[in-house]
């Protein structure tokens, strides 16, 4: 369990984390989302005491992190792939980490096998690919068999098999009653992995709810209709609370009406439909909507194919 209370971090005049309050519950995978610069990494660093909060506090499993007698058994953390001396082998890195807590070498071999590093464990970390570095970081996080896992972008650089492995691993760890806090920018992956989502924007919590609630609250369900008579159908359905977007020449996206209503009305007006699909909103849609005003580093507007809105 991670509990943050009015957790704040200033860097000079810039406020990276602005009095956030949240609780990360055990037994669930909690996704930590937010645009670049929203304060996710800073928050994670404060949880494990690498950065000192400017104000407020954060507790892990009931205590400030540094008060635990066996920190690596309380929290396993993957902050970024570069927390390893490049001149050392993966095996020796893990051995040195394990030695601090008198964790036996057998556990080092266990996490090496678990993360699939057997073939490169004796090689120097400097030559590792991004994906191998991530696997080593995850191995280090698992070393103490910790009650809480904090993984910053764990799937960054992993192959599809690795991404799936992280998903299964984190779900399994949560099922064992552990606390799992996970950040990622891959929304589809997050939708499959997380139970609960905390969204940060410009250092503040802008959403803290279950995945289903986040999607339901932020994005609307729509219906996709393919018909050769888009203009006729659009004028037939037009009313105050209905939005109709012309996606392609013969495809409309309609929100505010159900599939049944659209089908029935089209049939009554003898408009032929070639496709009628309910499209549920994705986490990505919800996320984009939540964070549209919170983006710190916005890319220049690329020209989008704007549909004709009616």
């Amino acid at each position: 369990m991670i509990q943050a209370q009015s957790l704040t971090k200033h860097y000079g005049s810039k406020t990276a984390v602005d009095a956030v309050d949240f609780t990360v519950q055990p037994g669930k995978v909690t996704g930590f989302l937010g645009p670049n610069g929203a304060g996710k990494s800073t928050t994670m660093r404060m949880i494990v005491g690498l950065d000192r909060p400017s104000a407020g506090s954060v507790r892990v499993n009931g205590k400030p992190y540094h008060e635990h007698k066996a920190p690596l058994r309380e929290v396993g953390v993957l902050l970024d792939a570069k927390a390893v001396h490049t001149g050392r082998s993966a095996y020796n890195h893990l051995r040195a980490m394990a030695a601090t807590h008198s964790i036996p070498t057998s556990r080092v071999h266990e996490v090496i096998n678990l993360t699939g590093l057997e073939s490169v464990a004796r090689k120097r970390v400097g030559g590792f690919s991004l994906g191998m570095g991530q696997r080593l970081g995850i191995a280090a996080a698992l070393l103490g068999d910790p009650a809480t896992l904090i993984l910053d972008e764990p799937v960054n650089g992993l192959d599809p098999e690795g991404v799936q492995w992280v998903r299964k691993l984190t779900r399994q760890l949560a099922a064992e009653g552990r606390t799992v806090l996970l950040s990622s920018h891959l929304m589809s992956e997050m939708a499959l992995t997380a139970d609960h989502i905390i969204v940060l924007g410009r250092g503040r919590v802008i959403a803290d709810a279950s995945v289903a609630d986040i999607i339901a609250s932020a994005a609307q369900n729509t219906v996709r209709v393919r018909t050769p008579h888009t203009a006729a159908l659009a004028s037939l359905l037009a009313q105050a609370d209905v939005t109709i977007t012309n996606l392609e020449q013969d495809v409309l996206e309609i929100s505010g009406l159900t599939v049944n209503e659209i089908g029935d009305r089209a049939a009554a007006a003898q408009i032929s439909l070639h496709e009628l699909t309910a499209v549920s909103a994705s986490l990505e849609d919800a996320y984009m909507k939540l964070t549209q005003n919170e983006v710190e580093y916005r890319t220049g507007d690329t020209h989008t194919e704007a549909g004709v809105a009616r």
Partner: peptide, 17 residues
């Protein structure tokens, strides 16, 4: 997700020395 309260995992084993 069931999201019901599961028993929390309790860490065990040797600590810092």
């Amino acid at each position: 997700q069931p999201a019901t309260a599961r028993a929390s995992f309790v860490p065990t084993g040797s600590g810092l020395s």
